[in-house]
Every structure is written in C-alpha cells, then in structure tokens.
Design a protein around this nucleic acid. Structure first.
Lengths: 135, 135, 135, 135
DNA sequence: GTGGTCTAGACCACA
DNA sequence: GTGGTCTAGACCACG
C-alpha cells in the first residue's frame, strides 16, 4: 500500500486519499479482504488529521470499496477489485478528457496539443518515475 | 470574445474567467489595446456577481494581462499577447502532465493509458461536440 | 507653468493637478493675476479628461487659489502666492512626517532610517533631476 | 504583534494590514512558523470585516509571507523573515524617496527641505509621541 | 458610465 | 474551529 499526498494541492487531501485507495485496490497493492490501516494509523503516517482520513474512508464505504468489520476495522470489500478497476479507468479517462478538452478549446492548434501530449507521454515513459505497482 | 463558465466546476468561477481571458487573448479573440467588457457587463452576461468578475480582472492586472484605464475601464496590455500565449501553453502542458502522471501512477498499464489518450484525442478531433467539464 | 502627471499613480490625477498648480503658484511659475489654461486646453495638453481638470479647478477655487473671471476664464487669486507657499510647506511637511513616521513605526532601526534619508537626499541633490522653478 | 489601522486613510484597510504584517514579521514581532490570528479573530480585533482581512492574507500568501495550513489557519512562511526585511526596507525607501522628490520638485528650496526633514526626524526621535497619519 | 473597497451574510470543504 | 468563494448591495473617486 502506497500513498503520495500533496497537502497544498488544489485537490483536497480527503479526495487524494480516496483516489489512492481506489488505485491501490485496482492495481493489487491492496488485496480484497485485507484490513486497511486504521484512521489513526494512516493519519499519523501521512501527517494528516484523522478526521480527514475518516471522511475518506466513509466515502469509500459509501462507494462499496470498503466495508466495516465491527471491532476489527475496515477491510477491502469482496467485489472491490472489479469496482476499483472500473472506477480507476473512469477517473483517468475523465481527467484526460478534461485536459484535452481544455487544451483544444483554449485555441491552441491541434497539432500543438498533440505535440505536448507526446512530449509528456515520452517523459513519463522513460524511467522518469518508477511506479511501485503493476497490474 | 467567448466565454464558457461552469458554475459547479471544482475550479472557481473567478479562476475560470481568468483562464478564459488568457485563452481569448492568446488566440486573438481579444486584441491588444482593446477595452474588455466592464465588470458589470460581463457579470450580467455570465450571470455572475460583478465582484467576482472584478476579482478576476484584478488578478489579470497583476499578471500584466490587463491595464486600468482610469474611469474608462480595462484594456488588454501592450505585451499581453506574448504573455498569454506562453501562459496558455504552460497551463495546458501542466494539465496534460498532471493527467498523465496520475494515469501512470495509478498503476494503469502504460499502453492502456496511451489507448485512452488516443481515444480522447480522436473524439476531440472529429465531429463529437464539446464535452461538459462536469456539472 | 509646468506639469508632471502620472496617470497610474495611486494619487488621483485630479489631486495631482491641484498640487501642481499650488506648487507652480508658490514657486512663481504661475503669477498672481495671470489667466490659467482653460479646462479644455489643459485637458488636451495632459491627455486628461476635461472633467478631471474642471474638478481640480473647482477645488482650487474653493481653496482660494483661483478665482473666476466671468467670460474670460480663471485666474490666480490676488493672495494666492502667500496661500500657496504656506500650503506647499504644509503638504511637504506632512508627506515627510508621514514617511518618517511609517519608517520609524515599521521597526526599522532609527539609524537605518536616517541612512536611507541621507541617501535619498543626496540622490536628489546631485543633479539627478533638474527642476524648472526656483523660488 | 501590533496593529494600528486608520479607517479613513487614503490607503486601503487591506493594504494597511498587509504592510503591518510585513513590518511585524520583519521586526520579529511575528515569528517564522507561528500561526497568525485567524481572519475572524483579527477582523474582530480591528473591527474590520473578516473578508477584508482574508483579502490581505491572500495577498501575503501570494508574496510568500504566509502559507496556508489547511483547516488550521495560516502561518508565517519559512523564509518570510528575509523577505519581509527586504520588503520593509524597499517600502520605506520608496516612501522617503517619493516624499523628497515631491518636496524638491515642488520648488521648495533645497535647504528648506532639509530643514523640514531634520525637524521631523528630531520630532520622531525625542519624546513626541506617535502622530496620527490622518483621520 | 468605469473600477476599488468595504460590509454583510451565506455556504463549502477541511481539520 | 479554519480559510475560500460567492452573492448582495453600498459608497467612493474618476471621467
């Protein structure tokens, strides 16, 4: 399980936690049925307020990704893998769609947009960053 | 000059106005030296409070995109074209970079990411009309 | 008669005109009894809205610096010289007082303040700028 | 931490707050890393609307003087001390420069200007308590 | 008419 | 509790 939190990002810490849990489940870093860290533990690890973690967990429970195991904590729900893979795909697609839409509607020439995309795609391909999970 | 405001977007109305003025200047829809709509007029057109427009205009003035013509209004600054084209490029690149970074670091296989990009790039090129960001 | 207007100064154009007329009278650049330029003429010369000039003239009339000569325009009032010399002195003193007060109350060490004052006084002394009027 | 707000000054309340925070940081009255009063608290203390304080804080954040601690408040940024000392110096110098420039270009004899400066400098040094800017 | 500022009060997300 | 944003409406100086 792996987290990368940016406290000053425009996207809230809560949302970042939600997304990263989904991504971790989708990529197998968090297995179905496994207990996830407690609110306090994760809060301490990320130096984030426990309430914020709790809120993220609630959201994930609402989505069906997590389920409460009374007295033990929360675990990844039985059908979370499928769910998270779909959700991950949707989120990524949505983000890409928005970025490209903004790019095109900004008036930037279409081939310029494609060039930027290729550049960034190349940057992310050549070891600029090593990911921890592979599907 | 063309505006497309999404009141329920996570990005604030004020920031949307800022971005769209920049894009309009960059693409020539707003010419250097021309007066831009008054805060009241644009507010009415976008059904947004004039104060919100004023805040956006002030940010644009700080950036050097607009200059005040006391008692007359605000106009596009002399060197705004260059400025806005650079700014537009940076913003678009940043958005694309973030989307791709998130995509890759989510664990989604690299070729899957590329496939999504190609799909969306194609959609935005041919026929398919504008997407709503989110509403 | 000599004017130096800064359109983007925080102090309004109107106030700048008022001050500069006072300074011109005080230093003899504008003689008692002489007609001053018309609102339209000065407005054109300074590329300033005639209304702005008119407002400044009204203020000066209220102060007793200018008097209306019906059908001919406005002229420098009989006792304007004394008035303007006193007013100039007060304004300058006030400005200096405010600047020094701000400097001291900002917590900047007193000798540091004096050093800054000496520096600027020296700069203004050594031909950095040639003034047009001498009393 | 010490504030002195003049509601009827020509310089806006917001700008006064900005300047005084800078001065407080520069003189050590506000320490790096410490939380500053919340917008509501400072607003109440200065009998100013919280929005006005918030606007000042945002400007300070843009300058790099303050940083947001999400959900907790705002604190003095790590490198704010250096920043504010430089900024204070620049502001004071600028004010002094402007006052002296106006004095000289008003046609007031140079030694008269110096006399006024010496007078005020003496006043601010010995005994005489704080002047009201203008009210 | 223009922008600039302020007050007032509301709602939101975050901790 | 914190700041961020928005609406609403007021007043001001300027042109």
């Amino acid at each position: 399980m792996w987290f990368d939190i940016h406290p000053n990002s425009p996207v809230s810490i809560c949302e970042q936690i939600v997304a990263q849990v989904i991504f971790n489940v989708a990529s197998g870093g968090l297995e179905v049925g496994s207990l996830i860290p407690s609110v306090r533990e994760l809060g301490a690890r990320l130096t984030v307020h426990p309430n914020t973690v709790a809120k993220a967990y609630q959201e994930l429970e609402r989505m069906g990704v997590l389920t409460v195991r009374r007295g033990r904590g929360m675990e990844v729900a039985p059908d979370a893998l499928k769910l998270c893979q779909a959700e991950r795909r949707n989120r990524i697609r949505q983000r890409i769609r928005e970025a490209l839409h903004e790019a095109i509607s900004s008036g930037l020439p279409r081939d310029e947009v494609r060039r930027l995309v290729e550049e960034e795609l190349a940057n992310h391909g050549n070891g600029r960053r090593r990911e921890r999970h592979q599907e």
